[in-house]
Simulated scan of single mutants.
Amino acid sequence: MPNANEPNVRVRASATEQNGNVISDASNGNFIIDSLIQVPGGLVANPANVWTNVNAFTLSWVNPPDLSGIVGAYYKLDAEPGGPTDGTYVATSQPVIHNITMPGDGRHSIYLWLKDRAGNVNQAQRNALFNVFWFDGTAPASHAALTGLQGANGWWRSTVTVNLTANDPEPGSGVTAIYHQLDNQGVQTTTTFAVSAGRTPTALLGTRCSRQ
């Protein structure tokens, strides 16, 4: 038999009859033997190592030489594949996959391996990028703590001190800023401030916070 990967194999067939006549096939057949698949190279993630709240990522790579040609790729997030088809398959001859979605907030890894036209696929011939996709789709929560002399029916009988805090639980990206707006005043970033006496109970305190 020829080697495992041969670009051009020629076969000539002949047969011998019981009377000794030899019959030979006058035609030569050419075919390709391809039983190997190689590791994809040059993995590039986009966006990479930066927090985003848009759950759509791209992975590109460099296809290795392959006699029958690459026809698709498998990828798996956060865990090594346990078999040749233990992943999400994308049929593509181009070395890129768009709109990869993360299963939840946090930093995610990706494993990639290829399939060729001959049907070769081997998860052992994989490449990987670790903790490269950073997704945070959960907004942080803010809280306002009020202190002062509280009266009846929602009224305060003194100046009220407002202390703002925010929380973005793991595996979120964390809080970088807290914003507040009182009535029609401009947006402020101070986390502790005073509201003077004399305001009506319809005074509006709005807060929001941002991710890193």
Score class of each variant (00 low, 15 high):
Arg12Ile: 14
Arg12Trp: 08
Arg12Thr: 14
Ala13Trp: 05
Ser14Pro: 07
Ala15Met: 07
Ala15Thr: 11
Ala15Ile: 10
Ala15Ser: 14
Ala15Cys: 03
Thr16His: 03
Gln18Asp: 12
Gln18Ala: 15
Gln18Pro: 04
Gly20Asp: 06
Gly20Ser: 02
Asn21Tyr: 15
Asn21Val: 13
Val22His: 10
Ile23Trp: 15
Ser24Tyr: 06
Ser24Arg: 13
Ser24Leu: 06
Ser24Ile: 13
Ser24Pro: 00
Asp25Gln: 12
Asp25Ile: 09
Ala26Thr: 13
Gly29Cys: 00
Asn30Glu: 09
Ile33Ser: 09
Ile33Asp: 07
Asp34Met: 12
Ser35Asn: 13
Leu36Val: 13
Leu36Gly: 01
Ile37Leu: 05
Gln38Asn: 14
Gln38Tyr: 13
Gln38Lys: 11
Val39Gln: 14
Val39Leu: 05
Pro40Gly: 07
Gly41His: 11
Gly41Gln: 03
Gly41Lys: 01
Gly41Glu: 05
Leu43Arg: 03
Leu43Trp: 02
Val44Thr: 12
Val44Cys: 07
Val44Phe: 08
Ala45Asn: 06
Ala45Gly: 09
Pro47Thr: 09
Ala48Met: 06
Ala48Arg: 05
Asn49Gln: 15
Asn49Cys: 03
Val50Thr: 15
Trp51His: 01
Thr52Phe: 09
Thr52Tyr: 13
Thr52Asp: 09
Thr52Met: 04
Asn53Pro: 04
Asn53Ser: 15
Asn53Leu: 02
Asn53Thr: 12
Val54Thr: 15
Asn55Glu: 03
Asn55Asp: 04
Ala56Val: 01
Ala56Asn: 03
Ala56Ile: 08
Ala56Gln: 10
Phe57Pro: 00
Phe57His: 00
Thr58Lys: 11
Leu59Phe: 07
Ser60Gly: 11
Trp61His: 05
Trp61Asn: 08
Val62Glu: 04
Val62Ala: 15
Asn63Arg: 06
Asn63Phe: 11
Asn63Lys: 03
Asn63Leu: 09
Pro64Asn: 02
Pro65Asn: 05
Pro65Trp: 04
Asp66Tyr: 12
Leu67Ile: 13
Ser68Arg: 07
Gly69Lys: 04
Gly69Met: 02
Ile70Gly: 03
Ile70Leu: 10
Ile70Thr: 06
Ile70Tyr: 10
Ile70His: 10
Val71Cys: 05
Val71Trp: 12
Gly72Tyr: 11
Ala73His: 09
Ala73Arg: 01
Tyr74Arg: 08
Tyr74Ser: 07
Tyr75Ser: 11
Tyr75His: 08
Tyr75Gln: 05
Lys76Asp: 11
Lys76Tyr: 05
Lys76Cys: 05
Leu77Asp: 01
Leu77Met: 10
Leu77Ala: 02
Glu80Phe: 14
Glu80Val: 15
Pro81Phe: 05
Gly82Arg: 06
Gly82Glu: 01
Gly83Arg: 01
Pro84Leu: 02
Pro84Arg: 04
Thr85His: 08
Thr85Trp: 04
Thr85Asp: 10
Asp86Cys: 08
Asp86Ala: 05
Gly87Glu: 12
Tyr89Met: 08
Tyr89Val: 13
Tyr89Leu: 14
Ala91Ile: 02
